[in-house]
Amino acid sequence: MTVSKKQPTVPPVLDVPNAGESEQFWIDTDYSDKMRFWAKRFYPTEAGQEVQPKSTTIFVHGFVEYVDRYRNIFKLWPSKGHEILGFDQRGWGNTCRSSSEPVKNYGNTTWPQQFQDLEHVIRTTRQRLDERWGANKVPIFLLGHSMGGGIVTAFHTRSDEWKQQHAANAPSQEAKDMVAGVVACAPWLTLTKPPPWFVVWGATKILSLIPEMHWSVDLLGKNISRDPVVASNFENDPLSEKKVYLKAIQGPLQGGMDIVEKAYQHWPESKPLLAIHGTADLVTSHKGSQMLIDRVKASDKTLKLFDGYYHDLLNEPGQDKVIVAEYVIGYVAPNLLLLLAERRS
């Protein structure tokens, strides 16, 4: 990450009654590279004391962004009795900035590494919740935006062949079973303006020769949100540089298309899936989300399109982002009732 004179950005203010509390913390690993993830959680309280949440949602952020961009909208979760936590992925945000070599590490990640990292966060979250509130008392949901939406979807659709090729990083069945449901928010499955096939093919060839090659991404603030404050923040944010490793793009670019064309067949039928997308998304195509929901054989699957919304659904103007957040929170409630019924039977 380059040294920048840009000032830290502040997301649009949102007044949320009974917003609970939040805390920043580190999620340590036993990886050989001593990776640790900057994380933040928002949790419900009563009379100033933390209370057991109805659910916990693990948020997986998108490309060239980080969790704290959402620090105002995430207050809605505890206001409804739920907890939400997010972690800055390897190569991004405060996780990268606090690493030993932030310039070298920025955007330095791959899909297999991201699956391994997500599994670690799921496991540590399950352990924390069980120790605090009792075994499996608080269900865990995944919410992934854009690149993160592709990750939470791909996490559940790895083929046996893929698992054999990436054995050390393949999501385990145990970790997947810890997830009660998945929400893919504007997922990176297909792009609104996809590159020609030969560009994707060429990128693979280049990476085989120059695995550490960098790439500048053409991602403009005005194309991600209709809110001018959000758009300006994105352009000037010191934590959102646009020069990354090409290998960070390869996974979602090729893998996203594979999910809607083939890998969707591996989605577990019993795993609830919600895909939400803006019809005016200029980055990822809502048609990709439509194809996923049409094709996946899940007993509980839903597609919710928001007419005229752009890509950054949880950072759209005014009440629009609140409408999206409340829809996601409302989606969790019926699944909680279903889980309780299953445990009682």
Rank of each mutant, 00 (worst) to 15 (best):
V121Q: 09
S98I: 05
F59P: 08
N72I: 01
Q113E: 15
F87N: 03
C96L: 02
G107D: 04
R71D: 12
G93V: 04
L85N: 02
V103G: 08
S99C: 04
I122Y: 05
S99L: 04
N94D: 14
P112G: 00
H82E: 15
I58F: 05
G86Y: 01
D68N: 12
K80E: 13
S99W: 02
W77K: 08
N94K: 15
Y66R: 07
Y106L: 02
G81Q: 12
W92Q: 13
E119H: 06
G62S: 05
L118N: 03
Y70I: 06
D117P: 13
R97K: 13
N72R: 07
W77S: 14
P78R: 09
V67P: 02
F74S: 02
R69P: 04
H120E: 11
E101R: 11
V103M: 11
G93H: 06
P78T: 08
E119G: 11
F59L: 11
R71K: 15
F115S: 10
T57C: 10
T110F: 01
G62E: 05
S98A: 12
N94V: 06
S100M: 08
V67W: 00
P102V: 00
Y66V: 01
R69V: 00
N108F: 09
P102F: 00
F87Q: 04
I73G: 07
E101W: 04
E101D: 15
F63V: 02
P112Y: 00
T110K: 07
I58R: 06
Q114R: 14
V64I: 11
G91A: 07
G81S: 10
V121H: 07
N72Y: 07
D88A: 11
Q89G: 05
D88C: 09
F63G: 01
R90M: 07
Q113S: 15
F74T: 02
R90T: 11
Q116M: 10
Y70M: 14
F115G: 12
I58V: 10
Q114D: 13
G62M: 02
V67R: 03
I84F: 05
S79T: 03
N105P: 03
G91H: 08
